[in-house]
């Protein structure tokens, strides 16, 4: 019954339920991932706290994007991917055989590196998620609410019927955030959401992240250390597919335990 309510499982088959410690939304446990023969993630262990922002930092190719894409099983779209280990969401393993990707992705929204609105109208972009999930909602109300949450409603309220591609890059990215919020996820994953944006648009999105953590659990991948320091509560530092250090952002940036973390943060490599 609980499983049904959580919507993680398709049926009530045998599955392991594991109580996560209080305040914890997700837990990554001994997680390995291979692209063909190349191992991209090596035994990653990490906790993601509820209503906090967790940042994943590290040099290019360290596996941070791979890790965040593992959290909603987006790596399943790449044929050569193989995984081992578990990722728990509210006590259920999303890599269990009985787990359903579609349900998982409804619970865990994602914003991508490059703004990727559909070539439809702005309103249709937002409504898309509700439509495919058969959510019975009032379209106008959802569109307005999500655009407002993504702090973009005022700029575009008179253009909701326009093609989303007519927006600027920063607006498109906030539209994508709004679109992810429309399906009312618990967790919001952001894969370098500002890498294609200018500083002003970036600042807007960072403010937005601060707002969003009141309602959502946010995981953000960034190559910009200042950004991680500004927006996150917890920071994970990755290098060559391994999680080197994980802790409170303040501690990671002011008093890193590992030498490699310190070197990266102080800009001596990476």
């Amino acid at each position: 019954m609980i499983k049904k309510i959580l919507g993680i499982l398709k049926d009530d088959g045998e599955c392991v339920y594991k109580e996560l410690p209080n305040g914890m939304k997700m837990r990554i446990e001994d997680f390995d991932l291979w692209y063909g023969k190349t191992q991209a993630l090596k035994s990653v262990n990490m906790n993601i706290k509820k209503n906090k922002v967790t940042a994943i930092i590290g040099p290019s190719g360290c596996g941070k994007s791979t890790l965040i894409r593992s959290l909603n099983r987006m790596n399943d779209t790449i044929p050569s991917v193989r995984t081992e280990g578990q990722i728990w969401l509210d006590g259920y393993d999303i890599y269990d055989d009985t787990a359903d990707c579609v349900d998982i992705r409804r619970k865990i929204g994602m914003v991508f590196q490059k703004p990727n609105p559909f070539p439809f109208s702005i309103a249709d972009n937002i409504y898309y998620g509700c439509q495919v999930n058969g959510m019975k909602v009032d379209k106008d109300e959802v569109v307005k609410r999500c655009l407002k949450q993504a702090a973009i409603l005022d700029e575009i309220s008179d253009r909701l019927g326009d093609n989303a591609l007519s927006l600027s890059g920063g607006q498109q990215q906030r539209l994508c955030i709004a679109r992810a919020l429309a399906i009312e996820p618990d967790v919001l994953l952001m894969d370098e959401p500002c890498s294609a944006l200018d500083p002003i648009a970036t600042a807007k999105i960072e403010d937005l992240i601060h707002e969003l953590k009141k309602d959502y659990t946010v995981v953000i991948v960034t190559h910009n250390m200042q950004q991680a320091a500004r927006v996150s509560d917890y920071t994970a530092y990755m290098y060559l597919g391994e999680l080197i250090e994980f802790g409170k952002t303040k501690q990671i940036f002011e008093n890193p335990k590992e030498e490699s973390t310190e070197k990266y943060i102080t800009g001596r490599f990476g």
């Binding site: 909603n72 987006m74 779209t77 579609v102 990727n116 559909f118 898309y128 998620g129 495919v132």
Partner: peptide
């Protein structure tokens, strides 16, 4: 059709 678009749709819980 850009893979970005298909990913966006899948990430929204579309089949």
């Amino acid at each position: 059709v850009p893979k970005d678009l298909k990913d966006a749709s899948l990430a929204l819980g579309a089949t």
